[in-house]
Design a protein around this nucleic acid. Sequence first.
DNA 1: ATTATTAATTGTAATGAATACAAAAATGGA
DNA 2: TCCATTTTTGTATTCATTACAATTAATAAT
Lengths: 140, 140
Amino acid sequence: MNTKMELLKKGLLKKGIRPTYIRLKVLDYLETNRNHPTAEAIYKSLVKEIPTISRTSVYNTLNFFHEKELINILFITGIEARFDSNISPHHHFLCGKCGRIIDLDIECNYFKKGNIRGHRIIELHGYFKGICKDCLKEGK
Amino acid sequence: MNTKMELLKKGLLKKGIRPTYIRLKVLDYLETNRNHPTAEAIYKSLVKEIPTISRTSVYNTLNFFHEKELINILFITGIEARFDSNISPHHHFLCGKCGRIIDLDIECNYFKKGNIRGHRIIELHGYFKGICKDCLKEGK
DNA sequence: ATTATTAATTGTAATGAATACAAAAATGGA
DNA sequence: TCCATTTTTGTATTCATTACAATTAATAAT
Ligand SMILES: [Mn+2]
Ligand SMILES: [Mn+2]
Ligand SMILES: [Zn+2]
Ligand SMILES: [Zn+2]
């Protein structure tokens, strides 16, 4: 049988990435928590199970994953980076009230890799800021 | 006759903003330098003419302008904010080689204020990362 | 299995953009 | 001029992120 961790391990090996314990745990966290967490949130969660883990390892691992194009890094809040294991092109919405970053599946013609005006596109980022549906309802 | 500064002053007054010397100089810099400068770049330039100016004043003024919807703040590099006095909706391109942020005038259907999926949109941000046309040519 | 080599992880110090805050200066009205 | 309010300044602080050397773990060679 294939446990969740076995599958993650296979996925990393297929990309030529050594499936170390920390890498597996960070990736597992990102796959399970698709709410664009901060590095600190990931650290805070993992340190409960791995008391020896360091913040530096979390940062190292996240940057490493980004280099290997396994995750996206979102600079939206202006305060801290947010991490996203969903690498399929999609837009985001940052709510100024509750602070959530919500996925938006809008089909935008310009939102694909390739070339634009002669520039080679490697990363795509589209996001909106405002007040989310829930916060509008509750009149927070 | 209307000097450039007189026009900037009138623009601020029309928006109910006191046209102080520093505000006029910061705005003048942004209007003249439409290359999305950092706060530090603005400070470095202004301090040559206004030796007593402080970094804090530059930051205060820029944030104040943003609150008054006079400028946009771009969080693209992940290192530092970039400021844009062009508030008409437009996309950006960040070159990973030369570091420039280039304006892109692409007409995107989703790039307008209003509501999307029930969320109220206040700010629009669309940008791409990659290698710019010039850097591709020079094979930097 | 033991050793050597390489890679990953850790802990601490440092960086640097941005903010907090209180004092000083400037502004505008009475 | 006097007073109240706003703006600007200088300094200290915050805090996310990185730098870096030491330690540990994993892999390859003997
Ligand atoms: Mn997402
Ligand atoms: Mn622009
Ligand atoms: Zn919300
Ligand atoms: Zn370039």
